[in-house]
Amino acid sequence: MEKTIGMRIKECRVKMGMTQEELAEALLTKKSTISAYENDKIDIKISILKQIAKELDNTVFYLAGEQDEDISNEVLQMAMVLQQIQSKELRKAAIEQVKVLVTIVNTGEKAKL
């Protein structure tokens, strides 16, 4: 059975150790609304889904079931952090540093073999 948007919201909320009340408070809504979202009883506007994704430190793509299952949340979090860098030059530099880190880690792992 494929996960619904509501199931994904609940899964992310629970992983963060957040209650429905806490999520509702963060979104300035009622616990009953969060419950309705999680049980797929009401449709969620994209603007609300964006807010939910932000509060749950995730993406709209994941919550909507559009994310490639091979892409981990950590990778998406890294992309979101990089996206927050306003300067294109600094963003490029950060990406290059991550590439260097990957090369170092992969070289070290090969050396262990």
Rank of each mutant, 00 (worst) to 15 (best):
E55D: 02
G17V: 06
E2I: 13
Q77F: 13
V102D: 03
K30A: 14
K112R: 14
K45M: 05
S32A: 14
Y62A: 11
E55I: 05
L82Q: 01
A111V: 08
V102G: 05
K15E: 09
G17Y: 09
A26G: 13
L28P: 00
E66F: 15
E11M: 11
L101V: 12
I34P: 07
K45D: 05
I9E: 07
N58R: 11
E55M: 13
G108E: 13
L90H: 12
N106I: 02
Q51F: 09
A36K: 09
K41I: 05
G65I: 04
A53M: 02
K92G: 01
R91E: 02
M78G: 04
I5G: 07
K45A: 11
K88G: 11
R13W: 06
M16Q: 13
I5P: 01
E55N: 10
A24I: 04
Q51R: 11
G17M: 06
Y62T: 06
N58T: 15
I104W: 00
M1T: 01
S35E: 08
I104R: 05
A53P: 05
A36F: 12
E96M: 06
S35C: 09
A36D: 14
I5S: 03
I34G: 11
V60A: 01
M80F: 09
I48M: 15
Q77Y: 07
Y37K: 01
E69Q: 08
E38L: 02
Q51Y: 04
R13Y: 09
I9W: 01
D57T: 11
V60P: 03
E2S: 11
Y62S: 02
V81P: 00
C12H: 15
V81W: 05
T103Q: 10
K99Q: 12
K30L: 08
S32E: 13
T107V: 05
T29M: 07
V105D: 00
L27A: 10
K30V: 06
K45S: 14
T19D: 06
I5E: 00
Q20V: 07
D43S: 14
L28S: 10
M7R: 10
M16R: 14
F61H: 11
I34R: 00
I52P: 00
Q51S: 14
K50A: 12
K54N: 14
D68Q: 03
K112L: 12
Q84Y: 04
R91P: 08
T19R: 00
N106Y: 03
Q84L: 05
Q51A: 15
E38F: 06
E25A: 15
A94G: 10
I95Q: 01
L113G: 13
G17R: 00
K30F: 03
E22Q: 15
T59N: 04
A93V: 07
I9L: 01
Y37G: 02
Y62M: 09
V105I: 15
K45R: 15
T103K: 07
E11A: 08
Y62C: 06
K15N: 13
K10W: 04
L82R: 03
K88R: 10
Q83G: 05
V14H: 04
T107E: 10
S87W: 00
S87T: 05
G17Q: 02
Q77S: 05
N39V: 08
M1Q: 09
G65F: 06
A24S: 10
F61G: 13
K92D: 15
K10C: 03
K45P: 07
L101A: 15
K110T: 08
G17D: 12
L49N: 02
I95M: 15
I104Y: 07
K99A: 11
I71G: 04
I95W: 02
Q86M: 09
